[in-house]
Simulated scan of single mutants.
Amino acid sequence: MEISSIIMIVGIVFVVLSLFFKDKSSKLEKELDDLSINIYQETNSLKRRIKTLEEELLVEPNFQVKSPNLSQKKQQDAMGSFQQVAAQVKAAQFYGAHSQNTPKANSKPINSILVSQVLALNGQGLSIDEISKRSTLSHAQIQTIIANGGIQ
Protein backbone atom coordinates (compact mmCIF):
# COMPACT_ATOMS: atom_id res chain seq x y z
CA MET A 1 0.00 0.00 0.00
CA GLU A 2 0.99 3.46 -0.66
CA ILE A 3 1.61 6.00 2.09
CA SER A 4 -1.18 8.28 0.88
CA SER A 5 -3.80 5.53 1.22
CA ILE A 6 -2.57 4.70 4.74
CA ILE A 7 -2.84 8.34 5.77
CA MET A 8 -6.34 8.53 4.26
CA ILE A 9 -7.48 5.41 6.18
CA VAL A 10 -6.06 6.78 9.46
CA GLY A 11 -7.87 10.06 8.85
CA ILE A 12 -11.18 8.29 8.24
CA VAL A 13 -10.70 6.25 11.44
CA PHE A 14 -10.11 9.46 13.44
CA VAL A 15 -13.21 11.09 11.96
CA VAL A 16 -15.33 8.04 12.88
CA LEU A 17 -13.86 7.95 16.42
CA SER A 18 -14.55 11.66 16.91
CA LEU A 19 -18.25 11.03 16.30
CA PHE A 20 -18.39 8.72 19.32
CA PHE A 21 -16.80 11.18 21.75
CA LYS A 22 -18.95 13.83 23.45
CA ASP A 23 -18.52 17.42 22.49
CA LYS A 24 -17.19 19.15 25.62
CA SER A 25 -17.23 22.61 24.10
CA SER A 26 -21.04 22.78 24.10
CA LYS A 27 -21.07 21.89 27.80
CA LEU A 28 -18.47 24.57 28.47
CA GLU A 29 -20.49 27.14 26.50
CA LYS A 30 -23.61 26.31 28.52
CA GLU A 31 -21.73 26.70 31.81
CA LEU A 32 -20.33 30.02 30.63
CA ASP A 33 -23.80 31.26 29.67
CA ASP A 34 -25.19 30.21 33.07
CA LEU A 35 -22.34 31.97 34.83
CA SER A 36 -22.84 35.21 32.89
CA ILE A 37 -26.59 35.14 33.60
CA ASN A 38 -25.92 34.63 37.33
CA ILE A 39 -23.44 37.52 37.39
CA TYR A 40 -25.94 39.75 35.59
CA GLN A 41 -28.70 38.85 38.06
CA GLU A 42 -26.46 39.46 41.08
CA THR A 43 -25.33 42.80 39.65
CA ASN A 44 -28.93 43.90 39.19
CA SER A 45 -29.76 42.73 42.71
CA LEU A 46 -26.88 44.76 44.14
CA LYS A 47 -27.95 47.82 42.16
CA ARG A 48 -31.48 47.52 43.57
CA ARG A 49 -30.10 47.19 47.10
CA ILE A 50 -27.89 50.24 46.66
CA LYS A 51 -30.81 52.24 45.28
CA THR A 52 -32.95 51.20 48.26
CA LEU A 53 -30.20 52.23 50.68
CA GLU A 54 -29.80 55.58 48.91
CA GLU A 55 -33.51 56.18 49.21
CA GLU A 56 -33.51 55.22 52.89
CA LEU A 57 -30.55 57.44 53.67
CA LEU A 58 -31.78 60.15 51.31
CA VAL A 59 -28.43 60.32 49.56
CA GLU A 60 -28.29 61.89 46.16
CA PRO A 61 -27.52 59.30 43.42
CA ASN A 62 -24.59 61.41 42.18
CA PHE A 63 -23.02 61.48 45.63
CA GLN A 64 -19.24 61.74 45.47
CA VAL A 65 -16.78 61.38 48.30
CA LYS A 66 -14.62 64.43 48.75
CA SER A 67 -10.90 63.99 48.58
CA PRO A 68 -9.13 63.56 51.91
CA ASN A 69 -6.86 66.53 51.11
CA LEU A 70 -9.07 69.13 52.77
CA SER A 71 -7.58 72.45 53.75
CA GLN A 72 -7.20 73.34 57.42
CA LYS A 73 -10.23 75.66 57.26
CA LYS A 74 -12.47 72.99 55.74
CA GLN A 75 -11.32 70.47 58.35
CA GLN A 76 -12.17 72.89 61.14
CA ASP A 77 -15.58 73.61 59.59
CA ALA A 78 -16.27 69.89 59.26
CA MET A 79 -15.22 69.28 62.87
CA GLY A 80 -17.38 72.16 64.05
CA SER A 81 -20.44 70.87 62.24
CA PHE A 82 -19.73 67.36 63.54
CA GLN A 83 -19.53 68.70 67.08
CA GLN A 84 -22.83 70.56 66.58
CA VAL A 85 -24.53 67.39 65.41
CA ALA A 86 -23.00 65.42 68.28
CA ALA A 87 -24.24 68.04 70.75
CA GLN A 88 -27.72 67.85 69.22
CA VAL A 89 -27.70 64.07 69.51
CA LYS A 90 -26.54 64.23 73.14
CA ALA A 91 -29.20 66.83 73.91
CA ALA A 92 -31.84 64.67 72.26
CA GLN A 93 -30.70 61.64 74.25
CA PHE A 94 -30.60 63.66 77.47
CA TYR A 95 -34.02 65.16 76.81
CA GLY A 96 -35.43 61.73 75.93
CA ALA A 97 -34.07 60.18 79.13
CA HIS A 98 -35.30 62.99 81.42
CA SER A 99 -38.71 63.63 79.91
CA GLN A 100 -40.49 60.47 80.95
CA ASN A 101 -43.27 62.36 82.70
CA THR A 102 -44.20 64.46 79.64
CA PRO A 103 -46.87 62.94 77.44
CA LYS A 104 -45.61 61.78 74.07
CA ALA A 105 -47.51 61.78 70.82
CA ASN A 106 -48.72 58.47 69.42
CA SER A 107 -45.92 58.47 66.84
CA LYS A 108 -42.55 56.78 67.17
CA PRO A 109 -39.52 58.89 68.15
CA ILE A 110 -37.75 60.45 65.19
CA ASN A 111 -34.33 59.12 64.31
CA SER A 112 -31.48 61.49 65.22
CA ILE A 113 -30.11 61.24 61.68
CA LEU A 114 -33.41 62.54 60.30
CA VAL A 115 -33.42 65.32 62.90
CA SER A 116 -29.94 66.48 61.91
CA GLN A 117 -30.89 66.21 58.23
CA VAL A 118 -34.01 68.35 58.74
CA LEU A 119 -31.94 70.95 60.58
CA ALA A 120 -29.30 70.94 57.84
CA LEU A 121 -31.90 71.30 55.07
CA ASN A 122 -33.58 74.09 57.00
CA GLY A 123 -30.19 75.77 57.38
CA GLN A 124 -29.81 75.60 53.60
CA GLY A 125 -33.02 77.61 53.28
CA LEU A 126 -35.32 74.88 52.01
CA SER A 127 -39.03 75.21 52.73
CA ILE A 128 -40.95 72.75 54.89
CA ASP A 129 -42.61 71.32 51.78
CA GLU A 130 -39.23 70.62 50.17
CA ILE A 131 -37.88 69.10 53.40
CA SER A 132 -40.98 66.91 53.63
CA LYS A 133 -40.44 65.67 50.09
CA ARG A 134 -36.81 64.75 50.85
CA SER A 135 -37.60 63.05 54.15
CA THR A 136 -40.27 60.68 55.40
CA LEU A 137 -41.55 63.15 57.96
CA SER A 138 -44.81 65.08 58.04
CA HIS A 139 -45.07 68.87 58.06
CA ALA A 140 -45.96 68.86 61.77
CA GLN A 141 -42.94 66.73 62.67
CA ILE A 142 -40.64 68.99 60.66
CA GLN A 143 -42.06 72.12 62.28
CA THR A 144 -41.62 70.54 65.73
CA ILE A 145 -37.98 69.66 65.00
CA ILE A 146 -37.23 73.16 63.72
CA ALA A 147 -39.03 74.82 66.63
CA ASN A 148 -37.20 72.71 69.23
CA GLY A 149 -33.86 73.02 67.52
CA GLY A 150 -33.57 69.26 67.15
CA ILE A 151 -34.54 68.38 70.71
CA GLN A 152 -37.39 65.91 70.58
Rank of each mutant, 00 (worst) to 15 (best):
S4V: 13
S5Y: 12
I9Y: 04
V13A: 05
F14K: 05
F14P: 00
V15R: 02
L17C: 13
S18N: 08
F21T: 12
D23I: 08
K27N: 11
K27D: 11
L28A: 13
E29W: 01
K30N: 08
L32M: 00
D33W: 08
I37G: 00
I39N: 04
E42P: 01
S45E: 10
K47Q: 06
K47P: 00
R48A: 09
R48H: 04
I50F: 09
K51Y: 08
L53N: 02
L53I: 07
E54P: 01
E55F: 01
E55H: 03
L57V: 07
E60A: 05
S67T: 11
L70F: 13
Q72H: 13
Q76E: 15
D77Q: 10
A78F: 13
M79D: 14
Q84K: 15
V85P: 00
Q88H: 12
Q88T: 15
V89K: 02
K90W: 11
A91Y: 08
Y95T: 01
G96H: 04
A97F: 15
S99A: 08
N101M: 11
K104Y: 02
K108T: 01
I110V: 09
I110L: 01
L114K: 10
V115S: 01
S116Q: 14
Q117M: 08
L121V: 05
G125I: 09
S127L: 06
S132M: 08
K133D: 07
T136Q: 04
L137R: 00
L137A: 06
A140Q: 08
Q143R: 14
T144G: 06
I146Q: 04
I151A: 01
